[in-house]
Computed example of a mutant assay.
Amino acid sequence: MTDQERRTGRDETEEERADRMWGELIQEVRVAQTGVQILFGFLLTVVFQQKYAELSDTDKTIYVITVILGASATGALIGPVSLHRLVAGRKVKPQAVRVASRLTSVGLFLLLVTMTAALVLILRVATDGGPVTWVVVAVVVWYLMCWYGLPLWSRHRHTTR
């Protein structure tokens, strides 16, 4: 058994590993893309609602920031598809997988921030203040546990040494 096989637990070449990882990454991106596209689409309609004119300047600023974050998350999460299309057949799949993985990580972080900003805006408008901060903090902690805490704990606990 080679050092590479011991590290990956699989008997695959670098190209085979890149093919497998690309397939897994694209499946992950499909889930995140759907969520970010629905959220971004919703955000784009808000400005055309009658209630928008009644928002405070602060809420309008939060909205604009949320739209910019949503657009950025959408770009980062669609980026791997464009990357693959532009480098397909150029024998750079292992490198493309690494770049696409980074784009996906950035996109997920931007999605987290977009969802947080959208939650702040919605709760500010729906509740006229109140416990918005505490509710948003609780939801963000939940996101962090689900998206980062549990996966990192699992990776640490179950990674073979």
Rank of each mutant, 00 (worst) to 15 (best):
T2W: 09
T2G: 10
E5W: 03
E5P: 03
E5K: 13
R6M: 15
R7P: 03
T8I: 09
G9E: 00
R10H: 06
E12C: 06
T13L: 09
E16F: 12
R17F: 10
A18I: 15
D19I: 15
D19E: 14
R20P: 00
G23K: 05
E24R: 15
E24Y: 12
I26Y: 13
E28D: 12
E28T: 14
V29T: 11
R30W: 11
V31S: 04
A32R: 02
T34Y: 05
V36H: 03
Q37N: 15
Q37D: 14
I38P: 00
F40W: 05
G41L: 14
L43C: 01
L44K: 10
T45M: 06
T45S: 07
V46M: 05
V46W: 01
V46R: 08
F48A: 15
Q50V: 07
Q50L: 05
E54Y: 04
E54S: 12
S56R: 12
D57R: 05
D57F: 06
T58E: 08
D59Q: 11
D59M: 06
K60V: 09
Y63T: 00
V64C: 00
T66F: 03
V67F: 12
A71V: 06
T74K: 05
P80V: 01
S82M: 15
S82F: 15
H84K: 12
H84V: 01
L86A: 08
V87R: 04
K91P: 00
V92E: 02
K93W: 07
P94C: 13
Q95C: 05
A96V: 09
V99Y: 02
A100G: 03
S101M: 03
L103S: 09
T104S: 09
T104H: 05
L108Q: 11
L108H: 02
F109S: 08
F109M: 09
L110F: 07
L110G: 01
L110I: 11
L110W: 02
L111D: 02
L112F: 13
V113M: 11
T114N: 00
T116Q: 01
L119P: 01
V120Y: 09
V120R: 07
L121T: 00
I122R: 03
I122E: 03
R124M: 07
R124K: 11
V125M: 05
V125K: 06
V125I: 10
T127I: 00
T127F: 01
D128T: 06
P131V: 15
V132E: 03
T133N: 13
V135Q: 08
V136E: 11
V136M: 14
V137H: 09
V137F: 09
A138Y: 10
A138V: 04
A138P: 04
V140C: 04
V141N: 01
W142V: 15
W142N: 11
Y143D: 05
Y143E: 02
L144R: 11
L144Y: 09
L144T: 11
M145H: 10
M145G: 07
C146T: 15
C146W: 08
Y148T: 15
G149E: 12
L150G: 04
L150R: 08
P151T: 08
S154M: 13
R157W: 10
H158W: 14
T160C: 11
R161P: 12
R161K: 15
